[in-house]
Computed example of a mutant assay.
Amino acid sequence: MTIVIILAVIILDQITKHLAIGLKKGSIKLIDNFLSLVYVENRGAAFGILQGKKIILVFFTFLIILAMCYYLYKSQSSMATISKLSISLIIGGAIGNLIDRVFRHYVIDFISVTFPNGYEFPVFNVADIAVVCGTFLLIIAFMKTDDFEELQ
Rank of each mutant, 00 (worst) to 15 (best):
Q14D: 15
C69S: 11
V58Y: 04
L57F: 08
V131S: 05
L72A: 08
V38H: 11
G26Y: 02
A94R: 01
L50M: 15
T16A: 14
E41N: 09
V126D: 00
A80I: 01
A80K: 15
L12E: 00
G26P: 05
V113L: 11
I140Q: 02
A80E: 10
Y106T: 04
I65H: 04
H18R: 15
I91C: 01
K17D: 13
G48P: 07
K144Y: 04
V4Q: 13
V4M: 11
G44Y: 08
F60P: 06
I31C: 01
A127L: 03
F115L: 15
L19I: 01
V58L: 05
E149W: 07
T145Y: 10
Q14T: 07
D32L: 00
N33G: 09
I108L: 07
I64H: 00
I21V: 11
Y70F: 11
I3K: 13
I3R: 04
F124A: 03
I10G: 07
I99F: 04
N33C: 09
I95R: 15
F47L: 11
T81E: 12
I6S: 02
F142P: 06
K25Y: 15
L89G: 02
V40N: 00
K17R: 14
G48C: 05
V131K: 07
I21W: 13
L50P: 12
T135A: 11
G52K: 12
S78G: 14
V102T: 04
V132G: 05
D100C: 14
G118P: 06
V107R: 01
G96Y: 03
I10C: 02
L151Y: 15
A46I: 07
N33T: 08
M68L: 15
A45D: 05
L57E: 07
A94F: 07
Y106Q: 09
F142Y: 10
S75E: 13
V4D: 03
I56F: 14
T16L: 09
Y106P: 13
K25N: 14
V58N: 07
N33F: 13
L98G: 02
